[in-house]
Design a protein around this nucleic acid. Structure first.
Lengths: 132, 132
DNA sequence: TTAACTGTACTATGAATCATAGTACACTGC
DNA sequence: GCAGTGTACTATGATTCATAGTACAGTTAA
């Protein structure tokens, strides 16, 4: 479920944040579902509990999960709250990447297809399940 | 022209790489145009020449610029050569960011508009100018 | 040729970050 | 109480980042 590259230049905790975000966004992890405990996950991945904690802290600050002392960490049910500022940031990163993609020869049509594919997979977050 | 944040967690040389890529992609810097020398730019930005060199080396390895000993560093005229592998990497990053964007509530229509806007600004790198 | 520029390649140093180890405390649920 | 949970520290070693300094090779114009 987690593929970590310990010799990557990208910090382990960042890899964890990315991977968990992915699982939450694609709804592999459902809302209010309990995540593995800091110690359990650390043991599974044979890394330090502090590293897990750092990833969880980051995810919580970004609104993707919430933690309750003594109980555990859980997937946030709704869209993160940091919306406006966060959205600007994502749009900004997206603009840079899209420019690079076009520069590298990826066509507009390809990009639109990519969006449609992803939208179908993610489902726009909120959906009524009227079109199964 | 260059806005560097020395206290950012993002390394200075990475900020430089990003910014220069942006200027090249948007054709603010033309093909074969000479970049400031390592020492000159370092003096202008009041940072170490080694940091500039690291950024230039990275840009050269990615195919965005080329350097000639004794002459200088110049903007590469064509699309980078690392295409296939590089394209896969960009597509991968793009997928993650697009998923996050959709999750944050940005609609497919907004994303398509963003693409069109960027495509107009960048021009797709190679164009026949048949549709002005 | 000389002088002044260019890129490039080293070594060394200090600061910051990352991951680890270990300890401790507060809370929950059985 | 006890075993689980999150959380907050300190400390240490490895790595990365940016700096300073030196050196060498190539280009260009005086």
């Amino acid at each position: 479920m987690f593929e970590l590259d310990v010799r990557s230049r990208k910090p382990i905790y960042e890899q964890l944040v990315e991977r968990l975000k992915e699982l939450i966004i694609t709804e592999v992890l459902s809302a209010d579902e309990q995540l593995p405990s800091v110690r359990t996950l650390a043991q599974q991945l044979t890394i330090n509990p502090n590293t897990i904690q750092k990833a969880y802290r980051e995810l919580e600050s970004q609104g993707y999960i919430y933690s309750i002392k003594g109980k555990g960490s859980f997937v946030s049910p709704a869209t993160p709250n940091l919306t406006s500022e966060k959205i600007e940031k994502v749009k900004n990163e997206l603009s840079k990447l899209l420019s690079e993609a076009i520069y590298l020869g990826i066509t507009k049509d390809e990009l639109i297809k990519l969006i449609q594919k992803i939208e179908a997979a993610v489902g726009g977050g909120v959906e009524d399940d009227q079109n199964p």
